[in-house]
């Protein structure tokens, strides 16, 4: 009995060792964001400052147009995710029921391709279509990330939902669309939640598309925070505050939807082989 308890404490300790770099990192990020420059430039480093520099956060919003970029991020991520669900959920259903291996391979290849390779031709296309300067290029190109993700997760999910109910419904005379809408879709709700959450996170975090396609007005948050680094004479406090603002929504979502994210990533990953 004591042996078992000791074992558990041992594993707890080992787990803490693994988790500590994560915790320390985020605490240090918070500490940097709440310190005045004098504390951030101090050596040896100050861990908990005497005076908290809440003004760093005010500065980020006041001086860098961050409300605008937050709104841009919301629009791009929201639209790209909703479009991906509208397009991707039925597609995942169709591919699962058709057992269409070839379409699955196309999706797989889309996941393997570096985002940059899409960017060159799409960049030219958007220029010709005169879309640069609006949010549309970013929304459209985010579909490159979100659609395959949603299709992939939903495909895996629909393969596990029972087909018998759907057969019963079609015997009763329901059309394919009605079967999908009334029978398959309600059962698939957990899968939809998972793909929704992951799609939001990956779209929100995306940097490379914005860095090429966004201008001053259409930047998303990751690009905005990166630009602070290059243009402002590096002052750490506001920079860390900005970094925290960008990633906080995702971290909160991760905390609350941990179960779904773990399920989605492992399912998606294991299917990936």
């Amino acid at each position: 009995m004591t042996h078992k308890i000791l074992g558990r404490i041992g594993f707890l300790f080992a787990a803490l060792v693994f988790v500590s770099p994560v915790v320390l990192f985020f605490l240090w990020m918070l500490s940097l964001s709440l310190k005045f420059e004098i504390d951030n430039a101090a050596y040896p480093p100050v861990f908990i400052p005497e005076h908290f520099a809440w003004s760093n956060y005010v500065k980020v919003f006041a001086e860098n147009n961050f409300f605008r970029y937050f709104w841009n991020s919301l629009l791009v991520t929201g639209t790209a995710t909703l479009l991906a669900l509208v397009i991707g959920v039925p597609a995942g259903y169709g591919i699962a029921r058709l057992k269409a291996q070839k379409s699955a391979i196309v999706i797989m290849i889309a996941r393997m391709t570096p985002g940059l390779s899409f960017l060159i031709p799409m960049f030219l296309l958007f220029q010709w279509m005169n879309l640069i300067g609006t949010l549309w290029p970013q929304i459209i190109i985010h579909l490159v990330v979100t659609v395959p993700l949603v299709v992939w997760i939903m495909m895996g999910y629909f393969e596990t939902t029972p087909i018998e109910l759907e057969e019963a419904a079609s015997i009763d005379g329901a059309t394919s669309w009605q079967v999908f809408r009334m029978v398959a879709l309600p059962i698939a709700k957990p899968g939809i939640v998972v793909s929704f959450i992951l799609s939001i996170i990956f779209s929100w975090n995306n940097f490379v598309f914005g860095v090429v396609l966004a201008n001053r007005e259409t930047r998303t948050l990751p690009v905005a925070v990166y630009n602070m680094l290059s243009f402002e004479q590096v002052s750490w406090g506001p920079l860390a505050a900005a970094a925290l603002i960008v990633t906080l929504p995702v971290l909160i979502l991760t905390m609350f939807a941990q179960k779904e994210i773990v399920a989605g990533l492992t399912a998606g990953a294991v299917k990936g082989g």
Partner: peptide, 22 residues
């Protein structure tokens, strides 16, 4: 603890990169 451990891979890479740079 597993939830905490998973956080880095969901965090925004650029934001993370800036703090690592510091």
């Amino acid at each position: 603890l597993r939830g905490v451990f998973v956080m880095p891979m969901m965090a925004t890479p650029v934001a993370i990169a800036l703090v690592w740079t510091m």
